[in-house]
């Protein structure tokens, strides 16, 4: 449905502009004609201009809503499940920076403040020796 968004918005904008122009023309005309005739009905806008403006606004709204991106989850478990399930997409360029933070609590379990660098290095040496074999 995303392809509909731009044409709809465009049609809506054109219709709205047309409606405004018609309303303006009508008021100018009726104000000049009011000097000649005193009937009150000519001062009111014709119904088709009302309808045109309302339809144009509706089309604009639908077009803009269709064109907006997908909504972000606001429920905690949906958001957390998304983090767990999906791989990082920021490398491919489609994800934005907010998505790339991952589980905010994983740092608590990783415990960088207490990192045991000596053991990690020792394990890494063993690992690289295994790779070399």
């Amino acid at each position: 449905m995303a392809w509909l968004s731009r044409p709809l918005t465009l049609v809506g904008l054109v219709l709205l502009a047309h409606g405004c122009y018609s309303a303006h023309e009508h008021t100018v005309l009726s104000s000049t004609s009011a000097q000649h005739s005193t009937s009150p009905s000519t001062a009111a806008l014709p119904l088709d201009i009302y309808i045109e403006t309302a339809v144009a606004t509706f089309l604009l709204c639908v077009g803009l809503v269709l064109g907006s991106g997908t909504l972000k989850p606001i429920e905690w478990h949906t958001w957390a499940g998304k983090i767990e399930r999906e791989a990082d997409r920021s490398l491919s360029g489609s994800g934005d920076a907010d998505d790339a933070t991952g589980n905010p609590f994983s740092a608590l379990e990783a415990r960088s403040g207490f990192i045991n660098i000596h053991k990690l290095h020792g394990d890494f040496v063993k690992y690289s020796q295994q790779l070399g074999k």
């Binding site: 920021s90 490398l91 933070t101 991952g102 990783a110 890494f124 690992y127 690289s128």
Partner: peptide, 19 residues
Amino acid sequence: MPPLLLQPHASLSHAEALQ
């Protein structure tokens, strides 16, 4: 998962650390 560079280091495997 965030890119490797931003993940807390202690949670990485040896291969990822090398990378």
